[in-house]
Simulated scan of single mutants.
Amino acid sequence: MSLDLDTARTIIAGTRAHAAGAGFKPMTVVVLDAGGHVVAVEREDGSSMKRFEIGFGKAYGALSLGMGSRSIMGRAEQQPYFIAAVTSAVGGSMVPVPGGVLVRDGGGALLGAVGVTGDTSDNDEAAAVAGIEGAGLTAQAD
């Protein structure tokens, strides 16, 4: 199974619905396939500039290290030189704060990642998890 456009749109819709229902600030949602390619993006009205790059960096970092961006933040706190080196190695496309969540199928196979930005990092992550799970997939936030 791959993360196709229809599934990506379902994830985005669920993410945005969760965020709206919780009263979060305007969101930008980036969905990447397992190879790090953009499948779909939506930027809500009122989102500040550079939110695509932040959402992409959260998702791309999660794919690059095989862990959710919450875990990457923990690594950054413990091993800042390692995270700085990895960020450089991936061309600067890594944002080590919550909001980058891996997407897995029911069997555990990696399908891609979702990066959400716009509110607090914890709220971004909660919205991403809701969108992924709402699409019938498994979210790996850590």
Rank of each mutant, 00 (worst) to 15 (best):
M1G: 15
D6W: 06
A8I: 13
R9A: 06
G14Y: 09
G14N: 11
A20Y: 02
A22W: 01
F24G: 00
K25E: 13
K25G: 02
V30A: 08
L32G: 01
V38R: 14
V38M: 12
V39A: 04
A40M: 03
V41A: 05
R43L: 02
R43A: 11
E44I: 10
E44R: 08
G46I: 09
G46C: 06
S47N: 06
M49P: 14
R51Y: 09
F52T: 01
F56E: 09
K58Y: 03
A62M: 10
M67N: 04
G68Y: 08
G68S: 05
R70C: 00
M73H: 12
M73E: 14
A76I: 00
E77N: 11
Q79R: 12
P80H: 10
A84E: 13
A84R: 09
A85K: 09
T87R: 14
G91K: 09
G92W: 13
S93F: 10
M94K: 02
V97C: 07
G100D: 08
L102P: 05
L102G: 11
R104I: 01
R104G: 02
G106E: 11
A109V: 00
L111Q: 06
L111T: 01
G118H: 00
N123M: 06
D124F: 05
A127L: 03
A127T: 02
G131A: 10
E133F: 06
T138N: 14
Q140T: 15
Q140N: 09
